[in-house]
């Protein structure tokens, strides 16, 4: 598989460096370039995490506290306090680097406990909604044509987070979750392999007239 040429953008950013490969722009920390270490282009690699600072605390119910060994807290005292409060008791546990920095028992103020405080959505917990009814066509990626983890452009562009990478390295490919895909055509337009070669609509590459309309060919 031929990879497009990599080009470094001229940027004043002191921390990040931007490279262009074909139509894909990748950001990576400056140091990485010094070591000549080329990292992949998947989303996870593009964020520079300082995990210690941005660690989310856990909020545990009494069963969850009882069901595990937590180093650095007096589990017995905490369980007692939680039992005093009742079923609404929660343990706020903050372990930035695996060590307990804050452990606080409190009474959950919620009346409707299935809704997060602030109506915040935890993206990884969120059950995918079945939006297949919105579609008028089925979108499928031709696994043979897909560039796999070398590309990932469609996965980034998909507004419904419906496209997932399957496998790693050579032979990896992208797949569209048929329940999550709403049929917006964005992946089809954005696919690096000039669309219809790779992303099939209703099992077909799209007709030439449509292609010409979109790409002016």
């Amino acid at each position: 598989m031929a990879t497009a040429e990599e080009r470094v953008l001229d940027s004043k950013n002191r921390h990040m460096e931007f490279t262009v490969t074909g139509r894909l722009v990748t950001a990576r920390p400056r140091e990485a370039t010094d070591k000549n270490e080329v990292r992949g282009s998947r989303i996870e690699d593009r964020v520079a995490p300082s995990a210690s600072e941005l660690c989310a605390p856990e909020i545990l119910a009494i069963e969850e506290v009882a069901g595990q060994v937590i180093d650095g807290i007096d589990s017995k005292a905490i369980l007692n306090r939680m039992a005093d409060i009742g079923p609404e008791a929660r343990l706020f546990l903050y372990r930035p680097q695996g060590n307990v920095a804050r452990a606080e028992v409190f009474e959950d103020p919620r009346i409707c406990p299935e809704i997060n405080r602030g109506a915040v959505i935890e993206n990884l917990k969120e059950k995918p909604k079945d939006v297949s009814g919105w579609r008028t066509h089925d979108f499928i990626i031709d696994t043979k044509g897909c560039l796999g983890d070398e590309c990932g452009r469609c996965a980034v562009m998909c507004p419904e987070n419906a496209i997932h990478l399957m496998g790693k390295g050579k032979g990896s490919f992208h797949e569209i979750d048929p329940l999550a895909c709403k049929g917006c055509y964005i992946c089809w337009v954005e696919c690096y392999r000039t669309a219809a070669d790779c992303i099939l609509v209703d099992g077909k590459t799209f007709d030439a007239a449509m292609r010409a309309k979109h790409f002016g060919e």
Binding site: V47, L54, A56, P57, I59, F92, R117, G118, E122
Partner: peptide
């Protein structure tokens, strides 16, 4: 300590 920090990876 935010219960739901915005950028916790």
């Amino acid at each position: 300590v935010s219960t739901m920090p915005l950028f916790a990876p």
